[in-house]
Amino acid sequence: MTLEGNILTPEGWFKGELTLRQGRIAGISGTPVDPEDNDAPRIIPGFIDLHVHGGGGADLMEGGDALAVLARTHARFGTTSLLGTSMTASREALLKAFRDAGSVMATPPDRAADILGIHLEGPFINPDMLGAQPPYARPGTLEAFDELDALAPIRVITMAPEIEGHMALIEALAARGVRVQLGHTAATHDQCVEALQLGARGFTHLYNAMGGLHHRAPGVVGAALAHADYAELIGDLIHVEPGAVLAARRAIPHLYVVTDATAAAGMPDGEYRLGEHRVFKQGNSVRLADGGLAGSALTMDVALRNMTGLGLTLSEASRRLSLWPARYLGLNDRGVLAPGYRADIVTLSPNLDVEQVWVAGCPVIE
Rank of each mutant, 00 (worst) to 15 (best):
L3A: 06
K15F: 10
T19I: 13
R21C: 06
G30Q: 10
G30R: 08
P35T: 08
N38L: 11
P45C: 10
G63Y: 07
G64C: 11
A75W: 02
T80H: 13
E92Y: 00
D100W: 01
S103Y: 01
I115R: 10
L116Y: 14
G117R: 14
E121F: 10
G122I: 09
D128H: 09
E147K: 09
E162V: 01
M167I: 13
M167C: 01
A168P: 03
L169P: 04
A174S: 15
Q181P: 00
T185V: 05
H189V: 02
Q191M: 01
C192E: 04
C192F: 00
V193H: 07
E194N: 00
T204P: 00
A209Y: 02
M210S: 03
A223K: 03
G235Y: 10
V240E: 07
R250A: 15
P253L: 00
T262Q: 14
A263E: 09
G266D: 13
G266K: 04
L274A: 14
G275C: 14
R278C: 05
V279H: 05
N284S: 14
A294F: 02
T299I: 12
G311A: 11
L312W: 13
L314V: 15
S318E: 07
W324K: 01
R334K: 15
V336P: 03
L337V: 08
R342K: 14
R342V: 03
V346P: 00
T347A: 15
P350Y: 12
D353F: 02
E355D: 11
Q356S: 15
W358V: 08
A360P: 02
